[in-house]
Design a protein around this nucleic acid. Sequence first.
DNA 1: CGTAACCTTTACGAGAACGTGAAGGTTTGC
DNA 2: GCAAACCTTCACGTTCTCGTAAAGGTTACG
Lengths: 156, 156
Amino acid sequence: MAEEVGLTARSIRYYEERGLLKPAARSEGAYRLYDADDIERLRYIKGLRDDAGFSLADIGQLLEDETARARIGARYRETDDPGERRALLLEGIARIDHQVATLRVKIERLQSMIEAATARRDHLHGHLAELDATGGIAPHPAGSGTHRPAERGSRS
Amino acid sequence: MAEEVGLTARSIRYYEERGLLKPAARSEGAYRLYDADDIERLRYIKGLRDDAGFSLADIGQLLEDETARARIGARYRETDDPGERRALLLEGIARIDHQVATLRVKIERLQSMIEAATARRDHLHGHLAELDATGGIAPHPAGSGTHRPAERGSRS
DNA sequence: CGTAACCTTTACGAGAACGTGAAGGTTTGC
DNA sequence: GCAAACCTTCACGTTCTCGTAAAGGTTACG
C-alpha cells in the first residue's frame, strides 16, 4: 500500500502513535486512508530520518512547520480573497525558511567537521612538503610511484 | 575524568564494549588510562554522534579510517626513514580524504533537502508575484515588506 | 594507616523505534 | 456470496544506547 514510500506499515502507524501523522480519513471499516499530503509528509519524514539522521523527536519539531504548511496550503485553496492568499503565502514562505534554517545548522556542524579534517590534512601536507624540501628523497620516487604495501607489524 | 570531552563514563565504556575504542593502557589496579589519541578519538566519536547524527554502527565504519590514522601517526613518530615517512603521510592524507568524502555525502543529502524546500519556496514566491501582478492588492501592505531570510545557492 | 573518592565488573532497567504474531473485521474479485 | 487478501487493534519481543545501582578493589591525601 503506502510502502511505496519506502516505509513499513508498522513504522507509519508508529509515527501516527508518536503524533507525527494524522491519517486524513478512515473508511467505513476504519481503514486508514491517506491523501497526497500525507504521502508527501511521509516522504519528508523518511528523508529526515534516513538522509539527515534526525531522531523522531527532532522530526516532530520540524514537522510543526510542515503541519502549518499543509494547513496553510489547504486554507489557500479554500479562499480566493487576495489579501488572505497573500498573507498565507508569506506565512508559508516563513515556515519553509525555518525548515531550511534547521537543516543549515546541521550542515554547518558537518562542515566544521570537514574543516577540522581538512586542517589535519593540510598539516600532513605541510610535513610532506617539508620532507620533500629537506631533500631526503625526490618528490617523485623512482619506479611505480607511491606503491608501498610493506607494513611491518611492529610492536604497539 | 574524561568527561571533559562531554561524554559520561558509561558511554565511553559502552563504546569500548562496541569496539570503538581501546583504552591505550591499564594501571596496576586495572584502571583505564587514556592518552591524547584516545581523547581525540572520543571527540571524533562525539562529533559524529551529536553533530552528524550517525549511529554507532556507522561510526564504527568511519573509525576504521581514524584507527588507521592513529596507527599511521604512531608509526610516523617511530621512524625517521624519509621514504617511509613520506609513504605514511600519503596514506594518512588518503584516510582523511575518505572521511571527508563520507561527510560530504551526508551534506549533499541535506543539501538536496534544502533545495527541495527552496523549490517550494520559489513556487510560493511565484504565486505571490502573480498575486501582486494581477493587482488585487498593493505589493506593500502596511508594515514590513517582503523579507528574504534564506539565500538561494549558498552552497558550501 | 585510614578513609574519601575514585575506579572495576556485573547486571538489571529504560526509552526509542520498530518487528512480529494473534485474533478478528473489511474489501475485492470472480 | 465467499475466499483471498487486505486491514484493525492489542500486545509482547528486540536492538540500540546508554542510566543506575550493587558489591567490591584502588589511589590520593593527610
